[in-house]
């Protein structure tokens, strides 16, 4: 099978994120450690498991600025065979639907059976990429997969919604976004990390892809910090006493009960 994996580099979950005072809508990247988007690890792992079972090719596709090379080396070290990289600012700064269009153009020639990506990118919290790429490639999509079973030209996907799990059957080719719990992503071995250095990373431009982006669809005008929480009350002492104070506070201040 041929699997396309869409991935992105994002700030580490433990990073403290602050707006860049000089650039409205951007974050200060100074001290931040960047990593492969955590959900994309599940997509890479799933792709590798699929091609281990049904031989083919698993190729990565990434939109991201120059610093993204580390994340690209990570997915190659995990086992993707090669990667395609679009790093023009126009693509990096595009809205999620336009990025779906760009990735669709980049993926088209590869003609994958399945497109995988993480269920969400944890920086801009966009979760529409799989659906957008699928739309522009005229494929169905399923988001948030907790389990994927492939049989013939169909994938059966289990996903969680509020209060239920859904079983969704998708005709291949299809795009599927991957949730935590789908698998246990592997750690690359030292040998794999070394080997990844010789794997192909192909840079492509929007012009080469024949993509012309229309007028800007959305723009982050500013990033602001959420309002600070008011200083809280602290209690210490006998369990019965502190629990009693908690109940009192809930009734009087929070008015929850």
């Amino acid at each position: 099978m041929k699997i396309a994996v869409i991935f992105k580099q994002v700030p580490d979950t433990e990073a403290v994120i602050k707006p860049d005072p000089a650039k409205p809508g951007a974050i200060g990247e100074g001290d931040i450690k960047f990593v492969l988007n955590p959900y994309d690890e599940y997509a890479v792992e799933e792709a590798l498991r699929i091609v281990e079972k049904s031989p083919g090719e698993a190729v990565g596709f990434c939109i991201g600025p120059e610093r993204s090379e580390a994340a690209i080396r990570t997915v190659l070290a995990m086992g993707l065979q090669r990667a395609v990289w679009i790093c023009e600012p126009a693509a990096v700064n595009a809205d999620v639907i336009s990025q779906g269009r760009i990735l669709a153009a980049a993926i088209k020639g590869f003609a994958p059976d399945i497109i995988l990506c993480g269920r969400e990118v944890i920086d801009t919290q966009e979760d529409a990429l799989a659906a957008a790429a699928a739309h522009f490639l005229d494929m169905p999509h399923v988001l948030n997969a907790a389990k994927i079973t492939i049989a013939g030209d169909k994938a059966t996907v289990v996903r969680e919604v509020e209060g239920a799990s859904l079983e969704i059957e998708a005709q291949l080719p299809a795009a599927i976004s991957c949730s935590k719990g789908l698998n246990e992503p592997r750690y690359p071995t030292l040998i794999a990390i070394k080997r990844a250095k010789t794997k192909e990373i192909k840079r492509v431009t929007l012009a080469e892809l024949g993509v012309q982006l229309g007028p800007v669809k959305s723009r982050v005008a500013a990033l602001k910090s959420p309002p600070p929480r008011p200083k809280g009350v602290r209690v210490e002492g006998e369990p019965a006493v502190v629990a009693g104070k908690g109940v009192e506070w809930l009734a009087a201040t929070a008015k929850v009960i």
Binding site: V16, I27, I122, D123, T124, Q125, S218, A221, L223, P226
Partner: peptide
Amino acid sequence: LTVVRPVYSGKLLAVTELTA
């Protein structure tokens, strides 16, 4: 039309202009 949505899981809020 301008909306606000959490980004970086709520570490920041993005004031977003929908120009489309």
